[in-house]
């Protein structure tokens, strides 16, 4: 295999069982099993996805709601196991699927920096060293000792983004996170991502904004009902998306 491959997805399929009613009590389970009433609707969230990107590539993933974009990112981030197929990746993956997944609302901002950092596999000593940088970037100096439950959603996202990008990831997974926060902070985030791109990070990026995809990405793919319908250079794919899918 090519040495420069950062992510390689081969024949990936994901199946969900959509049970018509969710069974989560023992009584129901026993009764329905005896009656033979447990039926599952199979639903393929992703089917036969194949692609490969190299180190330093920025892949934009486009598609309508429910087309499997987030599922794809979550498989790459190891949250879901593939039903079929394989995902190969090389390097440290930092998933930003939702900013601040791993925050505890009762903890203060300061304590959450260490908690969230450890979720990402960072060492405490590293976080202590980077602590000032994180707080400064998030612009939350005044609120850092306030419990997180009193933060607004924008403040939470700012803290999450500041922590997650302080490590230099090799593969960065971004799920629509650039659409949070105010315009000023968004600009700051985009600046930081641009810095990361310069260091040669590989990015997988989901967004509904074609402009953002064109700005950040060099490659793009379109997912439609779990199938990959296009893959190629970002500008061509974006044009196709505008013409065929959105219109």
């Amino acid at each position: 295999m090519n040495n420069d491959v950062a992510v390689k997805v081969s024949d990936l399929s994901i199946k969900f069982n959509l049970s018509s009613e969710k069974i989560d009590s023992i009584k129901e389970f026993v009764i329905k099993t005896l009656k033979g009433e447990i039926k599952y609707d199979e639903f393929w969230a992703l089917q036969n996805i194949n692609f490969e990107i190299n180190r330093g590539d920025r892949l934009g993933i486009l598609g309508l709601n429910g087309s499997g974009k987030s599922t794809l990112l979550k498989v790459i981030a190891d949250v879901y196991k593939p039903t079929e197929g394989k995902v190969y990746k090389k390097g440290k993956v930092v998933p930003l699927i939702e900013l601040g997944a791993g925050f505890d609302p009762q903890y203060t901002g300061r304590e959450n920096i260490f908690l969230y950092g450890s979720v990402m596999g960072m060492k405490r000593s590293f976080l202590t060293e980077k602590y000032d940088e994180i707080v400064e970037f998030s612009e939350l100096e005044r609120f850092i000792d306030v419990p997180l439950k009193n933060y607004s959603s924008g403040m939470r996202a700012r803290l999450g983004f500041s922590i997650a990008t302080v490590i230099k990831p090799e593969i960065l997974i971004l799920d629509e996170i650039l659409s949070v926060g105010d315009a000023k902070f968004r600009k700051k985030c985009e600046g930081r991502i641009a810095d990361l791109i310069e260091t040669g990070v590989t990015i997988l990026f989901v967004s509904h904004s074609i402009d953002q995809v064109m700005n950040i990405c060099n490659k793009a793919m379109i997912l439609d009902k779990g199938k990959m319908v296009a893959f190629g250079p970002a500008d061509k794919v974006a044009k196709y998306y505008n013409e065929r899918i959105v219109a």
């Binding site: 903890y107 304590e111 450890s118 979720v119 060492k123």
Partner: peptide, 20 residues
């Protein structure tokens, strides 16, 4: 080993939050 820091944080969190 990679996540030992995380488990330490979770244990500290449990103790801290129990009586906060």
């Amino acid at each position: 080993l990679r996540y030992r820091e995380f488990i330490k944080e979770l244990v500290i969190k449990g103790v801290k939050l129990k009586y906060r």
